[in-house]
Simulated scan of single mutants.
Amino acid sequence: MNTLRAHVCAPPPGRLCEGPVWDPRTGELLWVDIRGGHIHRATLTGSTPDLAPRATISLDPPVSAVLPCASGGLLAAMGDTIFRVDSSVAAERSSEKSPGGTFAQALSPVVTLPLPDDGVRRRLNDAKVDPRGRLLVGTMAESDDGAGSAGLYRLDPDGTLITLRTGVTISNGLGWSPDGRTLYYADSPTHRVDFFDYDLDTGTLSEGRSFARFPDGEPDGLTVDAQGNVWIAVWGAGQVRAFDPSGNLHTTVEVGPSQVSSCAFAGPDLDVLVITTAAEGGAAREPGAGRLFACVPGVIGLPSTPFADERLVHADGR
């Protein structure tokens, strides 16, 4: 088994950094600080490599995910609603703006999830776009009585919302095999990642089967490389672990802070693994908590697909 060590990057720490995604249109990495309500953007620099902060979009927290859209804008998951961020704001090069200002006016709601009013606190969580341009987004319970109360949903380009899974507690870790026909998915408190047959024509799932287990932590965000290896952030273990398509562990990336939240391949060649971490609770005292880390693992990632929102843009005229 290979062991790698990630190095800390320049951006300042956040409280709950998550959801890194490489945007090839701008040559930038996007990620969110969920608790702060921030969408951050940075460019890769140097041969080490490092990240140079470029701009921050500040919205009302929580902002749990950000993804590029085919229209040129961004898709942002905020609370219980998916918003489209206007392309002129998505391309903004200035520094941080205040909530309720220019950026708030540039938000267009796409869909609000019909979460039940049963006293359980829920919010949107991890989100990814499938190879056909549909959004998969999960919810999570933030209260102790919320076990099994969340789900996984599919948002189609025409705005239709479909429920894919129920009985979930913390929906996390979405990623597809290179041919798009296998979906990897984590409901974090189960301490495992499951895999599903994925129908690219319909965007539907088979029953899940266990792919990898994590007795010493909870699987969080994940990404898949061009060879089909699955790189999984292990919350509580301070590592990213890579498994081959058969589920065999072959590489461990030592990060440092225990709350490793997600990972993505970045750069023009998709050869840099960028890793997000959090600084929640007592973990905030750990060196490097809430920072971004990077390493060059010797493989390349898969290009991301933008959300195919052209029909939404046509429908509302923006």
Rank of each mutant, 00 (worst) to 15 (best):
C263A: 12
R122M: 10
L67G: 00
A283E: 10
T112G: 03
V120T: 06
L51F: 09
S58D: 06
L124H: 03
A283Y: 12
T169Y: 05
G167W: 10
P116A: 15
P287Q: 08
G173C: 12
T223F: 13
R122T: 04
V299D: 03
R209W: 09
G79P: 00
D269Y: 09
F265G: 05
T160R: 15
V168M: 13
A106R: 12
E286P: 03
A279I: 06
E310A: 15
S258W: 00
G180P: 11
E18L: 04
H40M: 11
I39V: 15
G256I: 00
V272N: 07
S95A: 14
E142F: 01
G317E: 09
E218G: 00
T43D: 02
L107Y: 07
A55K: 03
R84F: 05
G46A: 07
G19R: 07
S88F: 14
R213A: 14
A150E: 04
D220L: 08
V32G: 02
L4W: 05
A65H: 05
L312T: 03
G290I: 04
D316A: 08
G119H: 07
P178L: 14
P245V: 08
T251A: 05
L152E: 08
I82G: 00
R241D: 01
R192A: 14
Y153G: 00
A264V: 08
G238V: 12
C69S: 11
R35Q: 13
E207W: 11
A90D: 06
P114E: 02
R241C: 13
C17S: 15
D23C: 14
P157D: 03
D130N: 00
I300F: 07
D197N: 12
G148D: 07
E28M: 10
L249N: 08
L44Y: 04
P12K: 04
G146V: 04
F265A: 02
E92R: 14
G301A: 05
A90M: 06
L124F: 03
C69N: 06
S177D: 11
V63G: 00
D309I: 12
C295Q: 05
F196Y: 15
A266E: 01
S88W: 14
A52C: 13
S143H: 07
I170Q: 09
T251W: 10
P53K: 13
Q259M: 10
D156E: 12
A233D: 00
I39H: 02
A226L: 10
S94Y: 12
L75R: 02
A91D: 15
S188Q: 01
S149M: 10
V85T: 05
P53C: 05
G37E: 02
S108M: 13
G138R: 06
L205R: 01
R25V: 13
F214E: 10
C69Q: 10
A10I: 02
A55E: 03
G37S: 05
